[in-house]
Design a binder for these strands. Sequence first.
DNA 1: GGTCTATGTTTTGTATACAATATTTTTAGG
DNA 2: CCTAAAAATATTGTATACAAAACATAGACC
Lengths: 222, 222
Amino acid sequence: MRESRFEDLAEQVYRALREMILTGELVPGQKLVQEALSERLGVSRTPLLAAFSKLEKELLVELVPRRGAYVKRLSPLELLHLYDVRLRLEPLGAAEAARNLDAAGRAELEKAFSAYRDCVTDRDAARVRVADFEFHGILMRLSRNSILDRILSSFAIVLASNQRGLMKPMEKSLAEHEALVEAILRGDEGRAESIMHAHLAEARDAAAALAAGAAGPAAGGI
Amino acid sequence: MRESRFEDLAEQVYRALREMILTGELVPGQKLVQEALSERLGVSRTPLLAAFSKLEKELLVELVPRRGAYVKRLSPLELLHLYDVRLRLEPLGAAEAARNLDAAGRAELEKAFSAYRDCVTDRDAARVRVADFEFHGILMRLSRNSILDRILSSFAIVLASNQRGLMKPMEKSLAEHEALVEAILRGDEGRAESIMHAHLAEARDAAAALAAGAAGPAAGGI
DNA sequence: GGTCTATGTTTTGTATACAATATTTTTAGG
DNA sequence: CCTAAAAATATTGTATACAAAACATAGACC
């Protein structure tokens, strides 16, 4: 066994900041002052710096030399671009998950889906968002494509993206997820891929409309 | 103008290490000892740490807590997965580049292509590899999809991937690039996309063969 | 009164110092 | 001669200290 149960402070700080950004405790555009944060988290500035580096690569933080670190604000255009990328990658992941599913994966998938369904039943929008994020994340992990999983889980941003009011009605989304799960459990790669594609294409189009709207009227603030 | 001409030591170190890894000066599996490297680069260990964090997110470095940093070695399977991802993303980039091309982009594209062609003319395999990498990188930049550009340029690894003897004959690759450039200059999105797809599909299949071979005979070392 | 400059304060970037863990070497035992 | 424990060494992780740059404030000049 070569792994280590030890966890970097940098890693903990990274996760703490990520959480704070995703929950909205730190809002887009906000400056991340090193000393204030390190005091708040009870660590020195050193691990903070490493965490900033990681978060910058995930598009959650913007690092301006000599100026500081800021919570990144996604422009409507970047949001659209993000959906364009998801639209290409997640159907691949769904297909590979369908192909590579085993008993353990099946259990994980069913668990994630039922957690999602419960949130929808409760009509708790905030929790639905998180559960949806986790569902997609688990699916990509089940694809057994480590590169794909890495890229997509890197973009925790996808959660932030859903905050912008382009969530579709819960029931519709639930039905799509259900069909997707069913296809994957059956091992139907082609259908899993096309359902995922359709599922994301709508969101992408909503993002496109948003981007088009933002480009016109208001000159779109960065 | 809000940008800053100042450059972090961390950024410089990051680029220096990246270069060293890509040129093979640092070989996969090699341990990156902090003190040795910081002496060699003439900086303290602090900026080195930030650089490690960045490189880890790019899959160029593996960070094992309390054990150290190692130059990551891509397994044949990971290589295949990487091509699966490229196969989905780069055709999108080619299409968007064709759609969004302007005069400046046209000039950049032609310059990158002619640099590439010159390397092929000289039959200098090492330089062809670098020129190919830059050509693809510029193309993704021309797509104007910042997310896409970011993901793919993150994976400097793509260069490393080409080192594994799955480069196709130079003339064939040159012809494909030429057709691609022509399609983009014409603004033919569909054709640009399909050429790029075909261009990468072959490499992907070679990677698949390699992965299948590695999984069978030798039990595939990580 | 407004703008430019000078000074003081805050904040970042980097180096260094120290503590804790991993690795290597030495030494004792079977 | 090989194995196993213990000491010594090396290396990482983290905090702190200091220098340089950015920012804010106040004063002088037009």
